[in-house]
Every structure is written in C-alpha cells, then in structure tokens.
Nucleic acid binder design. Structure first.
Lengths: 105, 105
DNA sequence: TATTTGTGCAACCAAATGGTTGTTGTTATA
DNA sequence: TATAACAACAACCATTTGGTTGCACAAATA
C-alpha cells in the first residue's frame, strides 16, 4: 500500500467534500471552516493539509489567520478520468455492432 | 468514523480505477481482470465486491464463472458533485462583481 | 475418473485513516 | 499588560484498508 495523496483520495472523505463545498462559496480560515461540523479544529486542520497538498485549496497567511481558498480547477483530473472511462464504455457498443455486422455477412 | 461505501470511496483506490477502466472495454471474469495487475486474485475479488456494492459494476453467474460488467452510469454522482461545487465556485465571482458594483455607486 | 480452472471463505497482518487531547507559540484585543 | 483568539506540533488510539496465505468446493476438461 503506497501512500496515495491524489485528488481522488482527497474527495473520498465526506468531511473533506463538505469543506470543499463550504470553501467554494468563498475563502475562510480554519476555525470558520470547522464551525458547523462536529469535529475538532485539529481534525479539520488535518483535512485542510491533505486538500492543500493535492492543490484543491490554497493557503495564505493573513496576520495570525490562515486563510483557505478553493482551487477547483484541480478537480479536472476527476472529471477527465470519468469522461475517459465513459468514452471507452460507449465504444464497447460499437464493437458489438461491428461484431453483429460481421456475423450478418 | 462511519463506514463509507460510496462511489467516491470506490474510485479513490488506483487499483479499482484500473479495474473500472479495464471493464469499461467489455465484461470479464475475476481471474481475467487481475491478470496484468501485480496483486492476488483474492485482492481483486475484494475490490470487485466493493465496486459491486456501490453499483459501479454488476455481476452475473455463467457456469462456474463470475462475469463482471461496468455500469458507468453510477459515476454520475461524482460528476454531479464536481459540477455543483464548480457552480458555487463560479458564483463567488458574481458576488465579488456585485460588491464592486455597489461600491462604485 | 482425475485434474485443472474459477471461485468463495476465513484468518491474519502492516500500514493508513480519521479522530482525539494536550502543550506551546504568536497575534490581536480589552 | 493581561487575556483571548488562531493555529502548529506531537503523541496517542480505534478502526478501516489493502493486502496476504491456506483451504475448500463446484464446474469444465483431458
């Protein structure tokens, strides 16, 4: 089991998805992010670290505050993969069509 | 930590993503799926179980074989979530525009 | 019939995951 | 200046995860 720290793993956790949705409405500091969730600030900070490491959010220091901002361009990797898989999946029907056509002859 | 068994968690693992891609080209049995990966048949079977449980693949018995087929419609949940997040993220600029407009007055 | 093939089940394991609490440190604020 | 707010670091913990091996069993095949 190699350490996986990619976008797919980042959005696998429901809490992290909530964080992403919250941040997609505007930048917040760590304390603000965790306000409505029932987990400790430290737990949130860990999630933030993961999201930051794979580029989904960016951090900036503002006095004593650590402001987090969503960078949702990085979710492209996910939609790209899904699109690619779907493409192959659709071609599979073409293959079947070809096969049926070849039988008909 | 509640047990999460959803599509997001299903595609978080790279091996499972490879299985999905392989199956998107056509149905295969468990032994065939694991052929090129460097993991045991049992490991593959566990991944298959997870993928089946969240509907990404479907199973059918064919003699002694267990045939797996991709059902990529179920990846909609993923693209939907990404689309929804991106939508909010884009509206954030509108908010800023409104704010700047209100200052101008 | 004997053997190979495809699979299921169970036990086990190391590492990762998601979480906690406690301590320390720095920056605002009363 | 004393105190409150924001956050980093470390240690610890239970559970999950991804993987293994060994054994059993039914269905094809030589």
């Amino acid at each position: 089991m190699i350490e996986r720290r990619d976008v797919f793993q980042a959005i696998a956790d429901p809490t992290r998805r909530m964080i992403i949705q919250k941040l997609s409405q505007g930048p917040l500091n760590i304390a603000q992010i965790g306000e409505d969730f029932g987990v400790s600030r430290q737990a949130i900070a860990k999630h933030i670290k993961i999201l930051n490491e794979c580029g989904i959010i960016s951090m900036s220091q503002k006095g004593r505050e650590q402001v987090c901002e969503a960078r949702l361009e990085h979710l492209d990797a996910v939609t790209d993969w899904v699109t690619e898989s779907r493409k192959l999946w659709n071609q599979r029907f073409d293959k079947l069509d070809n096969f049926l056509a070849s039988i008909k002859k």
